[in-house]
Design a protein around this nucleic acid. Structure first.
Length: 423
RNA sequence: GGAGAGGUGGCCGAGUGGUCUAAGGCGCACGCCUGGAAAGCGUGUAUCCGUCACAAGCGGAUCAAGGGUUCGAAUCCCUUUCUCUCCGCCA
């Protein structure tokens, strides 16, 4: 949610900036301005009415005390009238607040000034490309064939047990994945992130706080009997740890990391996009989250991109970093970098990380604040990124490192896997 | 799942219908005192909304959340929720 103050201060500027997203905000913004003015006017009327009621009640109390009960009696009528009036105004105010809030949640985050205009991922701006593209012979196998050949992932078993998109990892496949998770967590710890192990189900408030609700509930698996949601990413529980808190400025930035299983319904996906490990309903991911001072969030975003790049470098995977254009930018994000690795047999770039600055979008919703040096409570900025998502890293490692002897494990993982080749 | 007890400010804790504008204490901040410090003394110390210059001041709301009774609710009633104790079940 953006700060309504921005609309009060300069609504035309807000509308103009939304154009980068191809988001036509004029009608919505005008509606918000009207509702906001009316809400404040109603608030004033209500406060005045309540103040009159309070004064009267106090007066009646005094009269009772001084034994003038009969005088108090006829004041009660006025008191009842004020109470009725206050109740009506309160109802109006609640309705207005609800409506205003509903309108505000329809506004996506204002894009950062560096976000390129554009409609689709074709307009994303590639800002960095690194690593050697492996040269594959014509007999190179895609990872799903390698997985079968070396018996490390059983897609059919997963389909039987649960359904498509729920693979069963096996033997060295599990070990490789566990090794990667441990490696990512150790690297994050070195980088100053505190490790958490959050719940995998969250309540409605949490899902709202990070922006999954109200609009993206179709992307989450739900447990309606308990009003809980399976997390699509540990960003949700991790960031919500700090919901409704006021942090100390000197404690910022808060740096958290967690490994978790992630669950996504991925309704509407099909075909080669979802083959093998490319797109799953259940997958593992190590996430990094930061809660920062607003003035530092963009420098920190760059740091996070550099950090994720360093992981891929250590894994010897070729990757590229792109800045998402307005049309491809998530609803909640002000600026997002995507990082993709090249999976050599599929000859495709696979997105393995998405690193975003949400500015105050999430902190506004979850009232995540910090107390500044001059004693004001300000909204913090929240950021997060994958560091990293496991399946596509597995896919690229398998495909890029295949050879006659089997699949070579990157050196940095040997200490974790305790084997160097999957063969 | 059953029974019982609870939820008050940063923390502890008083408070059972009208100076609650929430006692008292602790902590914290600032000041006085001091060679310096401690002690002592004094002052201050929540959040949100509105008015307004996002100042001061003023008004309103908040004693887990929501609803109700009453002229008036932290206090009485109902619902929800969370915590604790006991029982049951259980990795």
């Amino acid at each position: 949610m953006i700060d309504i103050q921005q609309i009060r201060d300069n609504s035309q500027e807000v509308i103009r900036r939304y154009q980068v997203r191809n988001f036509e905000a004029a009608v919505l913004v005008e509606d918000i301005q009207k509702k906001d003015a009316l809400r404040r006017q109603t608030q004033k009327q209500l406060d005045d009415t309540l103040a009159a009621g309070n004064a009267l009640a106090r007066k009646i109390g005094e009269l009772f005390k001084s034994g003038k009960a009969h005088e108090a009696e006829h004041l009660k009528d006025e008191s009842v009238r004020l109470k009725k009036q206050a109740k009506d105004l309160q109802e109006q105010l609640d309705a207005l607040s609800l409506a205003l809030n509903g309108l505000m949640t329809q506004l996506p985050m204002l894009p950062h000034t560096s976000v390129p205009a554009g409609r689709s991922e074709k307009d994303n701006e590639i800002v960095r490309e690194e690593g050697d593209m492996p040269q594959m012979g014509p007999d190179a196998l895609p990872h799903w064939d390698l997985a079968k050949k070396y018996d490390i992932i059983d897609f059919e078993a997963g389909t039987k047990v649960t359904g498509a998109g729920f693979p069963v990892y096996k033997g060295k496949g599990v070990r490789l994945q566990r090794a990667l998770i441990a490696f990512f967590l150790d690297e994050a710890a070195k980088e100053g992130y505190t490790e958490y192990q959050p719940p995998l189900l969250v309540n409605e408030d949490s899902a709202f706080g990070t922006g999954q609700l109200p609009d993206k509930d179709g992307q989450m698996y739900q447990v309606p009997s308990d009003k809980l949601y399976l997390i699509p990413t540990s960003e949700v529980p991790l960031t919500n740890i700090f919901r409704d808190t006021i942090q100390r400025e000197e404690d910022l930035p808060l740096k958290c990391t967690a490994h978790s299983v992630c669950f996504r319904r991925e309704a509407g996906s099909y075909g080669k996009e979802v083959r093998g490990l490319n797109r799953l309903h259940q997958f593992d991911k190590v996430e990094i989250v930061q809660v920062t001072h607003p003035e530092k969030s963009y420098a920190i975003l760059d740091e996070m991109v550099d950090y994720v790049a360093s992981l891929l470098r250590k894994l010897e995977l070729p990757f590229r970093v792109s800045r998402l254009c307005g049309g491809d930018l998530g609803f909640a994000s002000a600026l997002t970098y995507d990082i993709e690795v090249f999976s050599a047999a599929q000859k495709r770039w696979l997105e393995v990380s998405s690193i975003s600055n949400f500015e105050t979008y999430q902190s506004q919703r979850m009232k995540l604040r910090f107390r500044s040096k001059d004693g004001k409570n300000l909204l913090a900025h929240t950021l997060n990124g994958s560091a990293l998502a496991l399946p596509r890293i597995m896919a690229a490692l398998l495909e890029n490192n295949q050879g006659p002897e089997g699949v070579r494990v990157p050196r940095v993982l040997h200490a974790y896997t305790r084997f160097e080749v999957i063969g």
